[in-house]
Amino acid sequence: MSGPATIDEICAVAIAEAFRGDGEILANPIGTVPIIGGRLARATFEPDMVMTDTVAVLAANTLPVGDPDAERLVEAWMPYRDMFDVVWSGRRHVVMGASQIDSAGNQNLAAIGDWRRPKAQLLGLRGAPGNLVNHTTSYWVPRHSTRTFVESVDVVSGPGYDRVADLSDTIRANHEIRRIVSDLGVFDFDNPERRMALRSRHPGVAVEEILEATGFELRVPDEVPETRLPTDAELHLIREVIDPGGLRKAEFTPR
């Protein structure tokens, strides 16, 4: 292991931090950096979480990303269909991507433009509508810009706080957008109005840079801390155990 932490490693640790306190739930990060973050959290401060091998089992050991042949310590069969039982039980925290996200946390990964005939068909609703009304969700946006952090999303796949405000007590109790991690900073909704707020800026990133890259009025506290750096133990786990092939670098494009 050598060299200071890089932005991909800082983001992985920020995603790991989103799982802190979750205990025995199914942590379901989607995407390379989120998976690294989830596996890192379980290997360090959240040992009770369960995680899939991204295919069809729950694996108890710390798997390297992108290695379909890595030996799994199988603790349960989890075919795709069974994941919905977990979703609907509420015992899950998913990290999804967001092609667009707004100040109330509404997420779009379905389409750009009018969904009836989109300018760009994206992934579709996927499981977002069900996820948000059943369990905790966080988002990973590898390129923070006014195209991704927008005033209003074109399609609401995952509903934000304004969209669930009038729904049932059960839904409001289950709905939580814990964190948004981008390549510039970390964001949350820990305020009475439930509007997106800057929680920390990544080292070397100015608050002004984040505001310029955000298409809505972001809440900014008086003091904005820096996102914490990975510990030596975390860097070792990321570099030598979870992602020895450096796949995490591919999710970043140079600014």
Binding site: L125, P129, G130, V133, N134, G158, P159, R163
Partner: peptide
């Protein structure tokens, strides 16, 4: 019945 779809655009679509 399900809660999935409430709050999202699934019903509008």
């Amino acid at each position: 019945p399900t809660r999935a779809g409430l709050g999202s655009d699934m019903l509008a679509m």
